[in-house]
Simulated scan of single mutants.
Amino acid sequence: MTNARLQTPDSYGSGSYLASDVTVLLDIIDKQKVADVPVSQKEALIQSGQRHYSDMLTIEQAPTTMHERLYQQALEQGTTRTATDIAHLAYTLHQTFQKTVDNEQPLVLVSLVRAGLPIGVLLQRALADTNTSYSLPSVHYGVSIIRDRGLDSVALQMVLNAHPNSPIVFVDGWTGKGAIYQELARSLDVFSDRHHPNFANIFHQGEDVIPLLTLADPAGVAWLSASSEDWLIPSGLLNSTVSGLISRSLYSTPQAGLHRSVFYDNLVEVDHSLAFIDRIDAVRQTLTVPLQSLPRFKHPRYQTADLIHQIASDYDIVNRNRIKPTIAEATRAILRRDPERILLATADHPDTVLLRHLCSERDINISILGDKILPYQAITLIKQRS
């Protein structure tokens, strides 16, 4: 890492989170300097191959009143489950690393920006809680990963330089098709030689084991996850306003430095990032359920690969990036992309209320397919652009 503009990790910010929650390794740029590309134009540029999605941004607007209300409903019904899942994940990390980490060599959580950020912050708070049986020395960073372009190698090297003897666990919110897992695996391949000086930082669970942790893992690719269900994770319903007011990341070549992002200071009044963390963390502290050591998997199972293949065949989809499975991804795709159709397992599942409302609002076709798309509750198909 020779870029003179880069500093030590502790000189970077934390978005709208507390400095003790996370250090976000992104080059924050002024949103006035970013072209605001309308969704329909962005979709045409992406599908034609003229531009990569990480070269453009549609500037995020404040959620509507209906969107806010549905987020609050999701938070009401999902708070205890999220808190319980975080406790089980923290307990499992404690069981795994208690003999190998300490204050000098803490466990390093690297959240994948953006969906991993809220989950990573919740885990960092849980591991820092000395009133539990699962406290563990840990530090937490947010690092960009971009489909087709990989994990920000400059940011990862900064983490490795700062913590040369610590194991790293990568954190994401959920898995959809497993595409980000594959991107992460490709990015980490350079460390897979046992003679690489950072082999043990990455492959501490064994050769070829990518240490990816998620809250939900329908795709069956994570090393550690609280469940394999597609459920309404509250943080999956919002974008920057539950992710530290940070935009989706924009690509920079390693020679140019860190991946870039916009900080949405205009959305401060509608930001839920800290309130979400505080609420889940407070409930976690009151839990009385027995702690569970969750299963850890050496290799991905790709349990939905055949289903994705079948969906692509049924709807004549060549580019599988047009298929956005899970409630969270399906919802985000409606808000950020140009959808053609929504596939639902059931017509009235409480976890898809926002999806159905958005479809009604924008006159998007819904197909009810029953068990055919399980374990996913929802899949958005992006419109084909010639």
Rank of each mutant, 00 (worst) to 15 (best):
V113W: 04
V113E: 07
V113N: 11
R114I: 06
A115R: 07
A115N: 07
G116H: 05
G116C: 06
G116R: 06
L117T: 00
L117E: 00
P118W: 04
P118S: 08
I119L: 09
I119K: 08
G120A: 06
G120I: 02
G120K: 09
V121F: 02
V121R: 09
L122C: 03
L122T: 00
L122E: 00
Q124G: 01
Q124A: 06
R125D: 00
R125Q: 07
A126R: 07
L127Y: 06
A128E: 13
D129W: 05
T130D: 14
T130E: 15
T130H: 13
T130M: 11
N131S: 14
N131T: 13
N131W: 05
T132E: 08
T132W: 07
Y134D: 04
Y134H: 09
S135L: 11
S135A: 15
L136V: 04
L136N: 05
L136E: 06
P137Q: 10
S138G: 02
S138P: 01
V139S: 11
V139M: 09
Y141S: 07
Y141H: 09
G142Q: 06
G142Y: 01
V143R: 10
S144T: 02
S144Q: 07
R147Y: 11
R147I: 14
D148C: 09
G150R: 08
G150E: 02
G150V: 12
D152W: 02
D152L: 09
D152M: 10
S153N: 12
S153W: 02
V154R: 12
V154F: 04
A155V: 06
L156F: 04
L156I: 03
L156N: 05
L156W: 01
Q157G: 12
M158D: 03
M158T: 05
M158S: 11
V159T: 00
N161L: 14
N161Y: 06
A162M: 08
A162P: 03
H163W: 11
P164E: 12
N165G: 13
N165K: 15
N165H: 15
N165A: 14
N165W: 14
S166A: 10
S166Y: 10
S166C: 07
P167G: 06
P167V: 05
